[in-house]
Design a protein around this nucleic acid. Structure first.
Length: 495
RNA sequence: GGCAGCAUGGCCAAGUGGUAAGGCAGAGGUCUGCAAAACCUCCAUCCCCAGUUCAAAUCUGGGUGCUGCCUCCA
C-alpha cells in the first residue's frame, strides 16, 4: 500500500506521487509576526514538522519552505502600540517564534523567506498578471480580476455567485477600497502607500504588497512554479490559498501544487482558538505558567503528543483534562524511551547508542505496522499504538528490574525493541533527554535515608505503623520511593 | 443565508461492509500492615429515524446537534 494523502482539492485521499522521484517540494504558510504563537500555531507546525519527518523517514528528500509575513496592518498596529517600528516588531516575534517552536522540537525549515525580501519578485508577478489581463490598477492599487479565472473557487468549493449571495450586506459595508474594484471579490495584489507607512517604489506608485501575493512569489522563487505539497491551517483555505492558486496558476498556466493539505483548528471551550477572539493560550504561557490537573508543569513533549493523538484534519479541543491525560501518556512513552539509558548497562548491552533505521533486525513487524498506519494520510494516532505498545513493554521490564531484579526477557530483544521505540517516536519528534535520568539531589544524603529506613524498620517491627507511615510520607516528599519486600530489607530509589 | 466538514465508552481517539484498536482515568481480585510493582478480571453496539445487504459504526436518504470558512487568522 502506498502512502496516501487527503487532498483538499479533490476532498479525497490520493496516492502520493511526487513530481520528481523521491523528492518533495513542500511549502507551508507561516505566521504573521506580530505576537507570540499560541497553541493553534503549535498544532499546525507540529503537524507539518511530523509530516516532513515522516516523509524523510520514508526515504524522500524534502525541501521544506515556510514564510514569515513581515509586512502587514497588524504588525504596523503593533509597532504603534509598542512604540516601535515594523521591522523591530517583526524581528522580535520572529525570534520568539523560533524560541517557542524549538522547545516543541519542531525542526527548522530549509528556508524562511520574508515578504519584504521578495518585493521585486512580487512586483514582477503582479506585472505579469497585469499583462495577461488578470490584474488591473486603480489609483495605485492593483487588484486581481477574479472573474477572469474560470477555476476560481476550486479549492474551497465555492462559486462566486454563492459568495455574492452569502456576503449580502457585508459587501456593501463602508470600505472605501470596495468601490474601486470592478467586482466585489477582486482582491488586492498591491496596495497604494498610506502616509507614514513603509512602502516601496513600483510601477503603480509607492506602495506595498497585498497579503496573498507574497506566497505565490516566494514559492516560485524558492521552489518553482509547481510544488508537491502546499500546507497550512484550515482557516487559510479561503481566501488565502484560493487566491494563491488564482495568482500562480494564471501567471504560469500550470498547477501551483499537486497536493493541498490543511490542519484542523484547536478549540477552547468549543470555539476556535484565535487571536481575534482573544481565547488563546500562547505556547510560552502553556509551557511556563500552566499547571495540569495533577498540578504539574506541561512538558513540551506532552504538547507534541497531545497534538499527534488527534487526526490532523479534525478540530481538537484543548482542556485541562485532555492536556492532563496527554501528560500521563507521555510519561509512559518517556519511561520507555529512557529504558535503555537506565537499564541497558545492567542488561549487558554492548552499546547504548541508538542505532538508526536499517539496522533493526528482529522488530520489523512493529516498524511495518507503524508504516502501514501512518501511510494512511499521516494517521499518527494509529502509529502511536505501536509506540505505546513498545513503551509499555519496556516500562514493565524496567519496573520488574527495579522491584525484583528478576526479568527473563532476552536482553538483545529488549535492545531491539528499545531502538525501534526510539526510532518510531523520533519520527514523530518525540524525544527524551537522557540527562533527565540524573536526579536532582534531594536534601537527604544516602546515609540519612538509610538511617530513616532503619528507624522505620524498627517501628514496623513494633507494629508502630503511624511512625512508619510518617517516615514513608517524609521520604515521598523528598521523592524517595520505598519498596518493602518480604523477608529482605526494604529498598529505595529516587524517582 | 451560502459553502465545507464533524458526530464512537468518564476523557482523548482508531476503525472506510464482516461482527467495536490504543491511551488516560476507573472498578474488583491475587499479593500486601500501608505503599509500590506484577498478574488476572471488568468497563460502549458507535446522535436519531428509515433504507440497501446474508452482514453496517462503516453505504444511501431524511432529521438533529456541533464546528470552520464566507472579514485578519495556523
Amino acid at each position: 500500500m502506498p502512502l496516501t494523502i487527503y487532498n483538499t482539492l479533490s476532498r479525497t485521499k490520493e496516492p502520493f506521487q511526487t513530481l520528481t522521484p523521491n523528492q518533495v517540494k513542500m511549502y507551508c504558510c507561516g505566521v504573521t509576526v506580530y505576537d507570540y504563537c499560541h497553541l493553534g500555531h503549535a498544532r499546525s507546525y507540529i503537524v507539518w514538522d511530523s509530516v516532513r519527518r515522516y516523509l524523510q523517514w520514508r526515504g524522500y528528500t524534502v525541501e521544506y519552505v515556510q514564510n514569515f509575513t513581515d509586512i502587514d496592518d497588524k504588525i504596523l498596529k503593533r509597532a504603534d502600540l509598542e512604540h516601535s517600528s515594523m521591522t523591530a516588531v517583526a524581528e522580535k516575534y520572529t525570534a520568539a517564534y523560533f524560541e517557542d517552536l524549538h522547545r516543541l522540537n519542531v525542526r527548522d525549515a530549509d528556508s524562511y523567506p520574508l515578504a519584504t525580501g521578495h518585493i521585486q519578485e512580487i512586483q514582477d508577478l503582479v506585472t505579469d498578471l497585469e499583462h495577461k489581463g488578470f490584474a488591473y490598477a486603480v489609483d495605485g492599487d492593483v487588484y486581481f480580476r477574479v472573474r477572469k479565472f474560470a477555476e476560481y473557487g476550486k479549492l474551497s468549493q465555492r462559486h462566486l455567485d454563492d459568495l455574492q449571495a452569502g456576503a449580502g450586506d457585508r459587501v456593501e459595508a463602508a470600505d472605501p477600497d470596495q468601490i474601486k474594484k470592478e467586482y466585489p471579490f477582486d482582491f488586492a495584489l498591491w496596495k497604494a502607500a498610506k502616509p507614514g507607512e513603509p512602502s516601496w517604489e513600483s510601477p503603480w506608485g509607492n506602495g506595498r504588497p497585498g497579503w496573498h501575493i507574497e506566497c505565490s512569489a516566494m514559492i516560485q522563487k524558492q521552489l518553482g512554479e509547481t510544488i508537491d505539497i502546499h500546507c497550512g491551517g484550515g482557516d487559510l483555505v479561503f481566501p488565502h490559498h484560493e487566491n494563491e492558486i488564482a495568482q500562480s496558476e494564471c501567471a504560469h498556466d500550470r498547477p501551483l501544487s499537486t497536493y493541498w493539505m490543511h490542519n484542523g483548528m484547536v478549540k477552547l471551550s468549543g470555539e476556535k482558538m484565535s487571536k481575534s477572539l482573544g481565547n488563546f493560550i500562547t505556547i510560552r504561557k502553556l509551557l511556563d505558567d500552566y499547571r495540569d490537573g495533577n498540578d504539574h508543569q506541561i512538558d513540551p513533549m506532552t504538547v507534541r503528543l497531545f497534538v499527534l493523538t488527534a487526526q490532523y484534519r479534525k478540530p481538537m479541543d484543548f482542556s485541562d483534562a485532555s492536556i492532563t491525560a496527554a501528560g500521563q501518556s507521555w510519561q509512559t512513552i518517556k519511561d520507555g524511551l529512557l529504558f535503555g539509558y537506565e537499564f541497558g548497562e545492567r542488561l549487558g548491552w554492548a552499546d547504548l547508542a541508538p542505532i538508526r533505521s536499517g539496522a533493526i533486525s528482529t522488530t520489523t513487524e512493529e516498524v511495518d505496522r507503524f508504516r502501514t498506519a501512518v501511510d494512511d494520510d499521516f494517521n499518527f494516532a494509529e502509529g502511536l499504538v505501536v509506540v505505546f505498545e513498545l513503551a509499555k513493554e519496556l516500562r514493565k521490564v524496567g519496573n520488574i528490574i527495579t522491584h525484583d531484579s528478576e526479568q527473563t526477557v532476552d536482553p538483545n530483544l529488549l535492545r531491539d525493541k528499545w531502538q525501534t521505540l526510539i526510532e518510531l517516536a523520533g519520527v514523530l519528534g518525540l524525544e527524551v533527554n537522557p540527562d533527565e535520568l540524573k536526579v536532582e539531589t534531594t536534601g537527604l544524603s544516602d546515609e540519612a535515608i538509610e538511617s530513616l529506613l532503619t528507624e522505620r524498620q524498627i517501628a514496623r517491627a513494633n507494629k508502630d505503623f503511624a511512625t512508619s507511615d510518617r517516615i514513608r510520607a517524609q521520604l515521598t516528599e523528598e521523592k524517595i520511593v520505598v519498596i518493602d519486600k518480604a523477608g529482605v530489607p526494604s529498598t529505595w530509589y529516587r524517582s
